[in-house]
Design a protein around this nucleic acid. Structure first.
Lengths: 341, 341
DNA sequence: TGATATACATAGAACGATACACAAAATGAC
DNA sequence: GTCATTTTGTGTATCGTTCTATGTATATCA
């Protein structure tokens, strides 16, 4: 039973067994594993045969003590946003090519938990980190970036010098949404955002608000500019939606910061008998799978999350390889017009 | 730059520094860390002070070489099912109490990828594994369970002796759904499932189908029994839904294996002008957050994912502590009747 | 008093890989 | 045929913990 408490219930195949079986030194096997310089073709095949035969897998734990783990950590704020899984797929695909694995930690939008997860990932000696929409501020990220290569997605901090960022152009995306509505003749365009009391400006919603304001100003509608703040989608907000729809100064068009808010809004419209787009036009953000369903048919902004993830994994790998200067990638979103606007 | 390539860019605070600073041996510090037997109060406080002062964090990587990592791996099939994030929260909460951390791997419903993730988690020397709705068969899980403590959720294998399971009673849940519909006078009740060609019987959808059939038979409706198979929700199936609604032998009521299918079904009804529940009654499964929205108001079966997760973490922790005999927990679901049925 | 527990602390060998320094063999230049 | 250089392979210290074995006080008992 003591053995059970220990972490070694099984007789693992180690690099030593492989070396013995192949009739070479431990160091030689290690070289093959890392495809390091100085291995002949003959040696390589001998070792690889032994590996296959013994079904040897190097212990990441042991590797972590001196070299790389070939594992990167991904920190996500929350999984409920349907845009996240696709992003993860994009990252995963890029990593898989280079024989890297990913482990996901969920920060649940609590900065305390986020830092503790990051530290835990550093402790487990991951080779690099991808942060998705982190709540923590750029300076905190920079602090960690001194210890481990970091790429942040959905985190607007173009001046950062210690880590890379990959972003959809949220500012431009919001502008596109406003322009799309304006070009269809709407002028009374409000934005539906959420209560983001203490969020740093790196947060995407802040960027989208800025883009909204700029676009409204650009077409001479600054007096119509109005940002409605509801609780975060993680909380119920049926009442707020109903109140908004029945209020006297209900806007003619609404740009929602996320489909996560736009879809319940559509549902509330249907409930309250408000015609979309006849009485109220709606455009969302993220182009989640539900938006495309004919029954929903919500206009939205597509960020191409798969591409974002792919770019992020590229950047991270090159940074792990030693790149020092920061890179900041911005991907342009696209508008998808459907029935709701 | 060589240093950068190595994994040790920073000067980590090690257990040795702590020991030196506290004026005790390395072994003593280790004992405090693991709160092992044989440490005096005086020693403990001395060491803890030093730890706080130096901001020491034990290296999980090094721990992994000999002892525990205090980290468990969670393998999820896919993240798109909204029931999963809540489950993760439940697990996380239970683990946090015992100072354990969780790392999530996404298997993306590919058994090849699943096994590779499991192996990777074993290699990183996680202390235990939670598998959520694994595609791989019970015998494969058992194989891994010889190497590492495993608890499987949403995996019906009550005979398993090498690992534990936590399940919602999917068979009973499906019966409840049928009974709920039957008690409201419907008899032409079809089930909407997905094409699960090569899934083992441990998969939840299979259990729900069995429950459906049993319940239909129990109330003398075996001749009305009909299972409609659509592609998995990860694929678009608008056409199939439209065809179903316009077909001549459209059923009077539908029990969907998941809200993931029931909600698009509702949308399609709305689209096609089919009145719910007047013309077609619908009941789903999972009680996802959207189902409760007044505009949607979908009847559904609630599995209490948070409780499932909490039970799973309990089981895993006790298994890590050395428990050998398997335990199989079954949690009863509840019906939530709303407007759709 | 001596014998024997008991509690506390320590030294040092693991764990399984990597990576440095170096030796041996092969190659090339003249 | 000699010397320099390159290629290929090896020995072994090392990473930061845990854990076994062992030591040394101090308390307990007959």
């Amino acid at each position: 039973m003591e053995k059970q408490k220990l972490g070694l219930p099984t007789d693992r195949v180690t690099i030593r067994h492989v070396a013995e079986h192949a009739g070479v030194s431990v160091a030689a096997v290690s070289k093959v594993l890392r495809n390091a310089y100085g291995v002949s073709e003959a040696l390589r095949t001998k070792v690889e045969n032994a590996i296959d035969l013994l079904k040897y897998r190097p212990s990441t734990a042991a590797r972590a003590m001196r070299g790389r783990t070939y594992t990167v950590g991904i920190l996500v704020v929350e999984l409920t946003n349907p845009f996240v899984p696709v992003l993860l797929e994009g990252i995963d695909a890029g990593l898989a090519e280079a024989n890297y694995k990913a482990m996901v930690g969920v920060g649940r939008a609590a900065s305390k938990l986020e830092t503790s997860m990051i530290e835990s990932m550093i402790d487990t000696r991951m080779d690099g980190l991808v942060l998705i929409g982190p709540q923590i501020s750029g300076s905190v990220v920079a602090q960690y970036a001194k210890q481990i290569p970091i790429v942040a997605i959905a985190h607007h901090e173009p001046q950062a010098t210690l880590y890379d960022t990959v972003n959809s152009d949220d500012f431009a995306g919001a502008q596109m949404a406003v322009q799309a509505l304006a070009s269809r003749g709407y002028s009374d365009i409000a934005m539906l955002s959420y209560d983001r009391s203490d969020s740093p400006s790196s947060v995407v919603a802040v960027q989208r608000e800025a883009g909204y304001k700029a676009a409204m100003a650009a077409i001479g509608l600054e007096d119509k500019t109005r940002i409605i703040r509801h609780p975060h989608p993680s909380e119920p907000r049926t009442k707020e939606l109903a109140a908004l729809l029945s209020s006297k100064d209900r806007p003619r068009a609404i740009f929602a910061w996320s489909d996560l808010d736009a879809i319940p809004l559509l549902a509330a419209c249907h409930e309250a008998g408000v015609d979309v787009p006849g009485t109220l036009a709606v455009i969302g953000y993220d182009d989640c799978s539900l938006a495309g369903q004919p029954a929903v048919s919500l206009s939205s902004i597509n960020q191409d999350p798969h591409a974002l993830g792919a770019r992020a994994s590229e950047l991270l790998l090159s940074r792990i390889e030693g790149r020092e200067e920061a890179q900041h990638v911005v991907v342009q979103p696209t508008v998808l017009l459907r029935r709701s606007a």
